[in-house]
Design a protein around this nucleic acid. Structure first.
Lengths: 196, 196, 196, 196
DNA sequence: TATGAATGAGCATTCATTCAT
DNA sequence: GATGAATGAATGCTCATTCAT
């Protein structure tokens, strides 16, 4: 029991550190966030950081992993949400749930997108997103809604579009969820108004 | 004449410096490229850098401006390329010329995309691209090919998609131009294969 | 108590840094004393200097303030020393105490005099001295010993004379106090021997 | 003849360089005056400076020597001015002529006083002044007007007083000559009003 | 001789990391 | 474990000096 209490406190401090890092990095950039400042904002001493992370890099990685751990289940849930629905409503549902999940991680999204090129690929939220979209599209292909020859680039296009809109809304302060339907409409039918 | 020779040499050195900066930043990141290294790779001394740029920031800005100066005319040409063509072939032409122009600026594209969030907006290649795409889409709306209500997000979606694919090809080494038709197909008709 | 120990050490290091700075500046000049050398002589690393002073300028200011803090009380004491004595013996007393106080600050005096023109006026030892002498002379005027019309330039003359002699003794290594009576004699009666 | 023309031009450039140096050093300080700026103000290129002076130090020395060459004769003239007059009027005359001579060298005086400690002793204007005053006082001693035992410190006191007042007038912009009589009065009779 | 671009040693400053308390 | 002062390598920048033209 005593052990559990101690572990709880450890976890509390860890969370405080990561939150502080997230805030500062989101505000000033990855490089401009000095460890002393992160420590100060977390309410601990610099040395303490090294009791939780082996070095600066590990702390950053810890931040990415931590957020990914929170986001991944929601992302998976969004993907499997309408597994029994046909492609179109399923995509719509996915987009809504996805953006809703992202809404509460604006700070981290900023960081993740700005520093995508720095984190080694293989286990990032960006890759989770790409994987999810790919899965969705594969389902669409299986369903016959999507032409197989489009399947290679489509995931890139979809995630690219999503990111672009996220960046825009992060900047202008607009809500992410508001764009869900519009994005889906564009993605489904393309540029052409198609209309009747 | 003497004057011209000297100016030619000045320009040569300037180019060497910017090329060195581009290479190093593309390889190691904007922050990791130290001036000593840039100088060494350019074959000059540190102090020389300061004969061409007032400080590090000005050098970086110089790099962006230099590349933009090369790219912008090509980008504008791509946009006005098929001004008399109907929307669809015009978009196709644009995408081909755009990616062809980008092909020779791979290093800079990497830098520009990775550091988009750092450069003050208003005069970047990214903005040039966005402006071009927006112009194209406006034309499409006027032509009745594009539904007006899509016009707000469409430019973001299109540029986002283009960037995503560029990033991918930059990583896997693939040619940019190879994807032009596929991108256009996706953008035009959307995800749905729409069958024949 | 623990707190006190740490603070004592901090103070020790601070003193070591200022002493090192004083020595080096006195020997090589204000500008020639590099921070690395100051740090080395103080027995600390360069970075440590920045734990005590925000930058080089602050360190120099710290040195001036530190010495002024030591000297000012002595200077004030010298001025008020014979407040109830008539002007002449009071001046004599002042000069003796002043030079005695200065004797233990030879290094700093050199620095202060050599760089008088660099430090912003308002809170320097030089100004303290001038103020003190002015006060003394004002008293003399009130006492009727000094003609009011001399009161404007007299402080400048007196402090100028004192400085000149200090500089001389700093150079030839002579004791400052040895000149007290001679200075007073000259100041009181002027150049003219005044005969018997 | 050709040779003479060339030498005249050389001299012109030399003067321009020294004037530029004087101006910049007086305004910004000895250290802050960079050679590039001196060259620019003199209307020549940096490299040209090295055709006239072996290095920065030599240029500074050149400046001091140049001004000394102009000032020394005036100073000597001031000293010998009233060689046949009794001490008192002779001192008065000296002070007037001295300050008048200094009036046209305000810029250089600022430099000379601020950097007295940097120039090696033996051939400075300061030393010329000290020598002159010493000579004057020696004459006074011989004349019986000055007590021999005061003769050691008196020159220091007198020059120190003069410097202090010069510094003051350099700062407040006041004319130097205006203080001549007051200084002499103080020096002659000392602090004491001497009353009637 | 005049020019001014090139040079590089030298300096102030930052910050991740260590470690004695 | 927590603390925060100490460390010193690394970086951007300056400027006296050189030298090809």
């Amino acid at each position: 029991m005593r052990r559990t209490v101690r572990e709880t406190m450890r976890e509390t401090v860890r969370v405080a550190i990561l939150d502080a890092a997230e805030e500062l990095i989101a505000k000033h950039g990855l490089h401009a966030a000095a460890l002393v400042q992160i420590a100060k904002r977390a309410g601990v001493a610099v040395g303490t950081l090294y009791n939780y992370f082996t070095d600066r890099d590990a702390l950053i990685r810890g931040l990415f992993e931590s957020r990914r751990t929170t986001l991944r289940p929601k992302l998976l849930a969004a993907i499997h949400a309408g597994a029994d629905l046909p492609f179109e409503p399923r995509l719509r549902l996915f987009m809504h749930e996805l953006l809703a999940a992202f809404e509460s991680h604006r700070g981290f999204l900023k960081i993740a997108i700005e520093n995508e090129h720095l984190v080694p690929p293989g286990s990032t939220t960006a890759q989770d997103l790409l994987a999810g979209v790919t899965a969705l599209i594969t389902a669409g292909v299986r369903e016959g809604v999507i032409a197989a020859d489009k399947a290679e680039l489509l995931p890139l296009v979809v995630t690219g579009a999503i990111k672009a809109i996220i960046v825009q809304r992060l900047q202008d302060g607009g809500e992410l969820t508001g764009d869900a339907d519009a994005i889906v409409a564009i993605l489904l039918d393309g540029i052409r108004s198609a209309a009747p």
